[in-house]
Design a protein around this nucleic acid. Structure first.
Lengths: 239, 239
DNA sequence: GGTGCATTGTAACAATTGTTAGTGTCCGCC
DNA sequence: GGCGGACACTAACAATTGTTACAATGCACC
């Protein structure tokens, strides 16, 4: 049941059976959310953290003028609010972008892990560090890449991340985001978002229909995006 | 000598004398960098982490077309590459934006801290989590704020962060960034950067001369920026 | 005191991106 | 089978942002 978590943490360093057991022991109950529901809301002070078992979610902030910006996309195996374990107060919300099945880990149990299992603690810490690395990559994309390259980069990133947790099939993956939602990822207007998707389709590197993205030319896509997966730390080494 | 680190970590939760001693014990030697020098370079695999004692530094990435994007600004008391302790490979560089005095902490000593001092480990982890929170705020600013609001937000953030480590005087602080460098923070052209600074000056909320920013109307500035410091976790509570 | 360079500041124009206002299609629901 | 809403897509136009080019200033260095 925690397979995707093991895949996610285990991609960076070996996870012992004892550590898997500790993680499993930290989990309490499962919960389902429907599309559009908040998994965690801004301003709250959660006493537990949420692991996605199935579905897609996103962190977001809403501004006074109603504009929304997603700051991350979360896939199965992601602890969407592990940072709240130490940050305490949520400065942003987390919303389900598709029906989501999650499992809840009490902070009190995570705290025991930090007291008694240093290596596992480092792996959880690492998980939040990869989060930060992804944020940095998004900042670069927003600031200095063309919008086409930004979208290409996002597709590359999602494909690779989903592959780790076995949620791709061939060169395709399911992406349950409307163009309006995608616009809130890239920080664009819906109209321009549509133009940018059109551009990527036109060069023939992807196809995109029925909320399914298919990469037609991985090499060329990666080139457009200048995608270098180093930041995802997908190398298994002692941590 | 580590005053700014104690101030930085101590703003989130109390630091015991024993913990201060552990941190001090983790430090080896000091080092100086001049403006423009890399503190850490992309692709390297550091075996130590770098704490800024004095000066301003920034994380950055350079794209193929020569465009540069800063992904964070680092002030005294910041561990600029603490994440490399677990990420292992630097996926970006870190450059000195002013003369910098730093002190080096060996990863081997940090590892001992994670094995033996869980509470201090959580505080170091927290430090990297605040980093992530700042990244998220930057993403929101880049995606959905006006450029003027983005700049205003940056000024608010820097003022507050510098205040914590006692690097402000009154409502002023030193910001050794040229407009070209600032443009690489906001992801703008130099010309437009100049326009945006002009806009903030015109409404009279800041003055900016000789690399010194003075906030003339904090309330109004905060309003323009929609600045809410929650994400900086400047509340002292058990972590 | 003069020279050269980095930096700020402008102007004119070009390119990108946003806004408003539609059309058409699909799909669930009555 | 018809209705209504969500979504993709487009066109025309407006606003923002980038590019190129240049003037003015200040400052290190000779």
């Amino acid at each position: 049941m925690l397979e995707s978590l093991y895949l996610n943490l285990g991609q960076h360093d070996a996870l012992s059976d004892a550590e898997k057991a500790l993680l499993a022991g930290a989990m309490s109950f499962e919960k389902d959310f429907s599309t559009g529901q908040d998994l965690v809301s801004e301003g709250s002070r959660p006493t537990n953290s949420t692991l996605i078992l199935e579905g897609l979610a996103a962190r977001y902030k809403v501004l006074e003028d109603g504009g929304r910006q997603f700051t991350s996309l979360q896939v199965p195996g992601d602890f969407v609010d592990l940072h709240a374990f130490l940050l305490k107060t949520m400065d942003h919300g987390i919303v389900a972008l598709s029906p989501c099945r999650v499992i809840i880990a009490e902070h009190s149990r995570l705290r025991v892990i930090t007291e008694e299992a240093p290596h596992l603690t480092r792996l959880l810490w690492l998980d939040t560090l990869v989060d930060g690395a992804i944020h940095r990559e998004w900042i670069v994309a927003m600031g200095r890449r063309s919008k086409t390259a930004h979208l290409a980069h996002l597709v590359c990133e999602l494909f690779v991340r989903l592959q780790v947790v076995k949620r791709t099939s061939g060169m395709s993956f399911h992406l349950p985001l409307s163009q309006a939602e995608l616009a809130d990822v890239l920080g664009l207007s819906v109209v321009h978002m549509n133009r940018v998707i059109g551009a990527l389709r036109k060069v023939g590197v992807i196809s995109w229909a029925n909320y399914t993205v298919t990469i037609l030319n991985w090499h060329r896509l990666q080139e457009i995006a200048e995608f270098d997966p180093t930041y995802l730390s997908m190398v298994r080494e002692p941590r």
